[in-house]
């Protein structure tokens, strides 16, 4: 191993990396929020009384889960504008792809969470004279949410990691800056190692939180 590490390259260019990090965080959080909302809507469609709605929601979930994210982001950025006639910015395309992708997984998490609550809970709530809406709001959903938190946390981690692929359409997030800097400074080792470290620092606390929630659930 005849390579010398030049950490100065990292510290010197840390500003770029941090700019990229900020974009990554914004991109991921916005997509996560949208994904949580859309995922809930899809999950409710999956549980609806009308078969057509259930089928449509199922198709949405299957399509977004059975195709690679890279294929999805390229399709949304290059192909979708041709269909709609509207061009998309890289950020918009990134948000659309990330949220739809996450929403498909989250929809399944929601569905499993809601169905996982024992039917006796609903019966007890109804027996007290609650309406379906009251039973859902006061009894079912609070319990379901607690159950789902670890799985939602996992999806969040995946989302943060997937955001790196949006660099391919030239969105200037962390990975994009890493690749640019690496080409510019010719010091890929330091730059990419630092980038990997930053991603790890971003997702590791989330992983710890997920583990904690998981253990707490098993105890109760």
């Amino acid at each position: 191993m005849s390579v010398t590490w030049d950490l100065g390259v990292v510290t010197h260019n840390i500003g770029y990396l941090l700019a990229g990090l900020r974009m990554t965080i914004v991109l991921s959080l916005v997509s996560l929020a949208l994904g949580l909302a859309v995922g809930l809507a899809i999950a409710l469609l999956r549980l609806s009384r009308w078969r057509a709605l259930r089928w449509a929601a199922g198709l949405y979930i299957d399509v977004w889960r059975s195709t690679p994210f890279l294929a999805q982001i390229l399709w949304v950025f290059y192909a979708l504008p041709i269909l709609t006639g509207y061009a998309l910015t890289a950020f918009t395309a990134g948000v659309i792809t990330l949220s739809c992708h996450a929403s498909a997984y989250l929809a399944e998490v929601y569905r499993a969470g809601i169905l996982g609550i024992s039917p006796g809970q609903r019966q007890a709530a109804l027996a007290l004279g609650m309406t379906n809406a009251q039973a859902a709001r006061r009894i079912i959903l609070p319990q379901a949410v607690m159950q789902m938190l670890p799985a939602i946390g996992s999806q969040s981690i995946n989302l943060f990691k997937e955001s790196a692929l949006v660099s391919i359409i030239n969105l200037q997030e962390l990975m994009w800056y890493a690749e640019s800097l690496s080409g510019f400074t010719m010091r890929s080792v330091e730059i990419f190692s630092a980038t990997a470290l930053i991603y790890a620092l971003l997702t590791y606390p989330q992983a710890l939180a997920v583990n904690y929630l998981h253990r707490r659930q098993r105890a109760a």
Partner: peptide, 11 residues
């Protein structure tokens, strides 16, 4: 932990 917390693209 390293390989699970970093994006595959980075790896």
């Amino acid at each position: 932990e390293l390989f699970r917390t970093t994006p595959l693209l980075v790896q």
